[in-house]
């Protein structure tokens, strides 16, 4: 299998592209089915709340530390860059506004989502593929339990519950990093920074933030579950499934992120 793949790459990138397209079309169908079934069960309130709570705990705990670390360093890097630029133009008083706007509308949601895709998406894909390989999914089907209802719905509910928490947390850490940089590099006090934030940020920004994080969480859950539920084989395939889940959910997130940015623009500040 892998040798065949390697040969194909050497033969022509176009063959690989064709391969990639067919696999992608199949995956989109699988994702569509998972989405439709998930909403069917949610609308009929066939939800295992206890399991959803457990999944929310896992998703939150698994991501807490990595989301914190990456948000801190993203906040530091971004504010450093912005501060250096604004100081040149004497725009110290605008630092808070620019940093928080970028953090809340763009960088915050996508950074948190990338980490959740890497942490949660990959472990869901690995877990479900392992369950598929060890016939646990077949065992559910024999007991007439729909794997989507049993496995996907609680993960989706859990992610939807945790994502706002994670993104507020990520945003807060990013903002803290921005304040520290502004203070240390440009000698802008926390008060001036926060005043600028207050005069720039409007409620709409938070709506966009939560909309983006909810969409991103849904993308991660649906893609990684669809990939996990449709992968069979051995140990090797668990690894492939993880790679596919991460790559697909991140790619789709980047595309959707742009579309949402475009649709939610409501005029300059």
């Amino acid at each position: 299998m892998q040798a065949a793949q390697a040969k194909k790459i050497v033969a022509s990138p176009f063959l690989l592209f064709e391969d990639w397209m067919t696999v992608g079309v199949g995956l989109c169908g699988q994702v569509g089915i998972v989405i439709a079934k998930t909403f069917y069960y949610i609308l009929r309130m066939q939800i295992d709340w206890q399991e959803s709570l457990r999944q929310a705990y896992f998703i939150g705990v698994k991501s807490f530390l990595v989301v914190g670390i990456t948000s801190l360093f993203t906040g530091l890097a971004m504010s450093l860059q912005i501060v250096m630029q604004l100081v040149q133009f004497g725009g110290e008083s605008a630092i808070g506004g620019v940093v928080s706007l970028a953090l809340i509308r763009q960088i915050g949601p996508i950074t948190a989502a990338i980490i959740v895709a890497g942490r949660v998406g990959s472990s869901i894909a690995a877990e479900l593929t392992t369950m598929n390989i060890s016939e646990q999914i077949d065992a559910l089907k024999v007991m007439r339990i729909d794997p989507v209802k049993f496995l996907v719905v609680p993960r989706f509910i859990g992610a939807m519950a945790m994502m706002p928490v994670l993104s507020i947390y990520s945003m807060a850490i990013g903002l803290l990093a921005g304040m520290i940089i502004a203070q240390v590099v440009a000698d802008v006090s926390f008060g001036v920074f926060l005043d600028s934030v207050k005069s720039t940020i409007i409620d709409q920004d938070f709506y966009v933030h939560f909309l983006k994080s909810a969409i991103n969480a849904a993308i991660v859950i649906f893609y990684s579950c669809a990939i996990g539920l449709n992968t069979r084989g051995g140990a090797e395939d668990v690894g492939h499934a993880v790679t596919r889940a991460v790559v697909w959910s991140m790619t789709v997130m980047f595309i959707v992120n742009y579309v949402v940015t475009d649709l939610t623009y409501e005029g300059p500040r």
Binding site: S123, A126, E127, A235, V238, G239, V242
Partner: peptide, 12 residues
């Protein structure tokens, strides 16, 4: 197989 999944997640 399970550990291959864990390893891949950890690497990411």
């Amino acid at each position: 197989a399970e550990e291959v999944g864990h390893a891949t997640t950890r690497a990411v």
